[in-house]
Amino acid sequence: MHEIGLIGSGFIAGSHANAYASIDDAEIVAIASKEDATEFADQWAPDAALFDGTETLVDEVDPDVVDVCVPTSEHRTVVETAVDRGYDTLCEKPMARTLADAQAMADVVEAQAVTFMVGHLLRFFPQYRRTREIVNEGGIGDPAVVNASRIGPYPAHAWNNWFADVEQSGGVLLDLCIHDFDYLRWLLGDVERVYTQSVRWRDERKLLEHAVVLLRFESGAVAHVTGSWAQPDERPFSFSLDVAGEDGLVEYDADDAASFEWYADEERGREPVTGIDPVQEEIEHFLDCVDSGTTPDITVEDAIEAMRVSLAAIESSERGEPVAVSEVTA
């Protein structure tokens, strides 16, 4: 049994708690939250002990694993607290708000030799995994041009509306597009340069931001990556992937792939049903690595490199010119 110390009680913490409920050999034994997490615990882990900080949680409960679901800018502090004490740690994406923070985290992970993984969730979506298998099997020849998008309204569900604070979240390019950046690095290898155009405006408490990044990979492949928090609230969140190669094409569009729909009273849903919860897959992979002592598929270096692509994209949007990822240093 893996005893889990969950840090955070917001939206993502809920998706993790939901996944733990389906994992037989894991149990949330403690929750640390700045907010009163009684209601959260009632829903997900009624027996969990509640704390107001990471330090007291780990010192008093001594869990097996710490799972970090707090705003990005707080990752470093929480991860350092846990890893420094030797706890295996799963951390939400992106790894950190700044490269300096990420590097400091990497240093303590290396020094403590714990199992550490950043949860780049897309790698556990069956449609994205299968796409990669097709590409790796030579099903489309060498990939040449990719379109990836992640489009929806502003995510107003976050605790304390922290996405709207760019100092905490990094905005769309760091928080949202990094899903595709990590996946595309996994699919195509390292990124040479990026060119970004982004727009941002505010409406009451919303940070409305829309960005398109052109990426040139070292392989020569080109990608057009769209991230949006700026869609009307009426537009459901959607995502797509289109990988064209010299010998073929793989396309996925969540809008077209709504294989399941239901309508009942006020509720309705339309979504692809795969029988797989990517969050559960991600956590199970991490726990497998904890058990076996192997390095997770998403390495610390991967998590840092994905961040560098995001930070290069942000820099490009500010400078109005292409930025080499190698230019981005702590």
Partner: peptide, 14 residues
């Protein structure tokens, strides 16, 4: 206003 466009010849013959 940004305007991005993918106008590649990237659809297979099939």
């Amino acid at each position: 206003t940004p305007f991005t466009l993918d106008g590649s010849w990237s659809r297979p013959d099939e």
